[in-house]
Simulated scan of single mutants.
Amino acid sequence: MEANSDKELRITLIGAGTIGLSFAAFHLSHLPAPSQLTIYDTRPNAEEYIRDNLTKFFPNNDAPISISDVRVANDLQEAVVHAHIIQESGPENLPFKKELWAEVEKHANKNALLWSSTSGIPASRQAQNMQDKSRLLVVHPYNPPHLMPLLELVPSPETSEDVIQRTQTFWRARNRVPIHIHKETTGFVANRLAFALLREAVHLVDSGVVSVSELDSIVETSMGPRWAVAGPFKSYHAGGGTAGLKGFFKNIGDTVQACWSDAGTPNVGDGWEDKVFAEAREVYGTVDIAERDRITHRLLSVLEEEKGKKDHDNGRST
């Protein structure tokens, strides 16, 4: 059965950590009936843990189907043998993933899609012990995946085009944004961009230019909302007026280069950690994740509504 079928769909999730349960919440909200969601996790109290924690991803326990219908498997072979999609969100540990995929391959249907939610271990390394390395694809979410639209599809050089296309079709049908990353690179793309900003943020705080809370306020009241509407290229292309991105660089290219040349180069372990960590802990304590997710959901809903209006108007004008 095709993974984008509107009929019965069987999805198996391996790993019930934060990312695994977030994906579970997403799939529960989008599974056609009758379908089956199976979760395989090795912790001794897996079933109790999943039942207790999965409900937290649904406001007011508003799950579209009963969470009691989720099948919790204790045996890997049993969990994957009938699945159309097998999605791994286990530890960020290469030996674990290499062993896991070699074992999954022995029991999974030959047409099943095999996805890893890794944050940084390339498919080419994970698939080293597999007989058919063309089956494995990294599907890297932006946390939390039950809310955030982005999925980075990062194939190895051996991943088949069919696997990439079927995966894109699956996620697009569920109003997600699967971006095909054309080349394996450390950290993929979203995290590279985010961590570049984080590095400069650490530099500015450590240098005494700004505090932790002040820097966050700057991002939240400037590039944060702007980038929710338009990414950096589109934003600065607009900033150049009729001359576009070329005009932008003509106008303030010297300032851009001066910032690039003066960019901070802190490294993990350089000694800035105590100051920055302590300040973040003093300002924020324990972050209210539920509040973060609620506001994010509202923001994404507004963006989707506005983009829908634009698409409607463009369709009407053509």
Rank of each mutant, 00 (worst) to 15 (best):
residue 296 T to N: 13
residue 315 G to M: 08
residue 222 S to K: 03
residue 238 A to E: 09
residue 215 L to C: 07
residue 207 S to V: 01
residue 237 H to E: 10
residue 303 L to S: 01
residue 236 Y to D: 00
residue 231 G to W: 10
residue 210 V to W: 10
residue 228 A to M: 12
residue 196 A to K: 08
residue 288 D to T: 02
residue 301 S to Y: 00
residue 269 G to L: 07
residue 287 V to D: 04
residue 190 A to I: 00
residue 260 W to F: 14
residue 261 S to V: 01
residue 209 V to T: 14
residue 280 A to N: 07
residue 281 R to A: 11
residue 228 A to G: 15
residue 296 T to G: 14
residue 247 G to K: 07
residue 284 Y to C: 06
residue 230 A to H: 04
residue 209 V to R: 13
residue 244 G to M: 04
residue 239 G to L: 03
residue 293 D to E: 15
residue 298 R to K: 13
residue 269 G to E: 06
residue 261 S to H: 12
residue 275 K to W: 02
residue 313 D to H: 13
residue 306 E to A: 11
residue 249 F to H: 08
residue 301 S to C: 08
residue 312 H to W: 06
residue 293 D to C: 12
residue 226 R to G: 03
residue 313 D to L: 15
residue 310 K to D: 01
residue 316 R to T: 05
residue 269 G to W: 09
residue 192 R to G: 00
residue 208 G to K: 11
residue 210 V to A: 06
residue 282 E to N: 15
residue 254 D to P: 03
residue 239 G to K: 03
residue 245 L to K: 02
residue 274 D to C: 05
residue 285 G to P: 11
residue 308 G to C: 11
residue 295 I to L: 15
residue 249 F to G: 02
residue 222 S to W: 07
residue 191 N to T: 03
residue 268 V to I: 14
residue 242 T to W: 08
residue 207 S to G: 00
residue 236 Y to N: 10
residue 296 T to C: 14
residue 225 P to V: 06
residue 201 A to H: 04
residue 208 G to T: 07
residue 253 G to F: 13
residue 213 S to A: 15
residue 253 G to H: 12
residue 267 N to F: 08
residue 273 E to S: 09
residue 290 A to M: 06
residue 312 H to D: 09
residue 296 T to K: 14
residue 292 R to H: 06
residue 313 D to K: 14
residue 220 E to F: 03
residue 260 W to G: 01
residue 268 V to Y: 15
residue 268 V to Q: 13
residue 226 R to D: 03
residue 226 R to F: 08
residue 285 G to S: 05
residue 300 L to M: 13
residue 204 L to A: 10
residue 314 N to W: 04
residue 192 R to T: 02
residue 284 Y to S: 06
residue 283 V to W: 11
residue 316 R to S: 14
residue 280 A to V: 10
residue 225 P to C: 09
residue 260 W to N: 12
residue 239 G to Y: 02
residue 204 L to N: 08
residue 288 D to A: 12
residue 283 V to P: 00
residue 211 S to R: 04
residue 304 E to C: 08
residue 315 G to W: 02
residue 208 G to Q: 03
residue 291 E to K: 15
residue 254 D to S: 13
residue 251 N to I: 01
residue 312 H to G: 12
residue 275 K to L: 14
residue 252 I to Q: 11
residue 233 F to W: 10
residue 199 R to S: 04
residue 276 V to M: 07
residue 200 E to N: 04
residue 279 E to Q: 08
residue 226 R to C: 11
residue 228 A to I: 00
residue 244 G to V: 00
residue 252 I to M: 14
residue 239 G to H: 06
residue 216 D to S: 05
residue 296 T to Q: 13
residue 236 Y to L: 06
residue 232 P to D: 06
residue 307 K to G: 02
residue 206 D to I: 00
residue 283 V to A: 14
residue 289 I to P: 02
residue 202 V to C: 11
residue 297 H to D: 05
